[in-house]
Measured scan of single mutants.
Amino acid sequence: MIINNLKLIREKKKISQSELAALLEVSRQTINGIEKNKYNASLQLALKIAYYLNTPLEDIFQWQ
């Protein structure tokens, strides 16, 4: 199981879903879906999320 901390980290950094989506060149709905565990981010997208949030990938998506 993967624990998804994207919403928590994004909100801590005061970045909206729309802002993050624009940086990543995806839709806001994609970010929303990832945060609600409706969609799994591809490895490429997960790495981009970590880069733009300046946060280690394993802090955003944790295996349990």
Rank of each mutant, 00 (worst) to 15 (best):
I49E: 00
L57C: 07
D59F: 10
I15A: 02
S42Y: 05
L57R: 02
R28P: 15
A41T: 12
L24M: 07
Y39W: 12
A21R: 02
W63T: 06
E11Q: 13
I2F: 12
M1C: 14
K48F: 04
A21M: 03
I34N: 01
T55V: 11
N32C: 08
Y51W: 10
G33N: 15
Q29C: 13
A50G: 04
S42T: 12
E25Y: 08
S16M: 05
N40Y: 12
T55H: 07
W63M: 07
Y39P: 02
Q62H: 09
N40T: 15
K48N: 06
K38D: 08
L8R: 14
N4S: 04
E19R: 14
I34K: 01
L57F: 07
T30V: 15
I15H: 02
D59Q: 13
E19Q: 14
N37K: 09
P56E: 07
K7I: 05
L53G: 00
M1D: 06
N4Q: 03
I31G: 00
K36Q: 15
L45S: 00
N32W: 09
G33F: 12
I3F: 10
P56D: 07
K13G: 05
S42N: 09
V26T: 06
N5G: 04
N40Q: 14
N40R: 15
A22I: 11
S16C: 06
I60D: 01
T30D: 04
I9Q: 04
Q62R: 11
T30G: 01
Q44N: 12
L57E: 01
E19W: 06
A50R: 03
I31S: 01
L53P: 00
S16E: 04
K7F: 06
N40I: 15
N32F: 05
Q17H: 03
V26C: 08
Q64W: 07
I49N: 00
S27T: 10
D59T: 08
N32D: 15
E11F: 07
V26I: 10
Q64I: 08
I3G: 09
R10H: 03
N37A: 07
A46H: 03
L23W: 14
L20F: 06
E11V: 11
K12V: 08
L6S: 00
N4E: 02
L45D: 02
L45T: 04
L45Q: 05
N37T: 04
G33P: 01
F61D: 00
S16W: 06
L20N: 00
K13S: 09
Y52Q: 07
N37S: 10
Q64F: 07
Y52D: 00
I3N: 09
K48H: 04
K48V: 03
T30H: 11
W63A: 05
I15R: 02
Q64Y: 10
K14F: 08
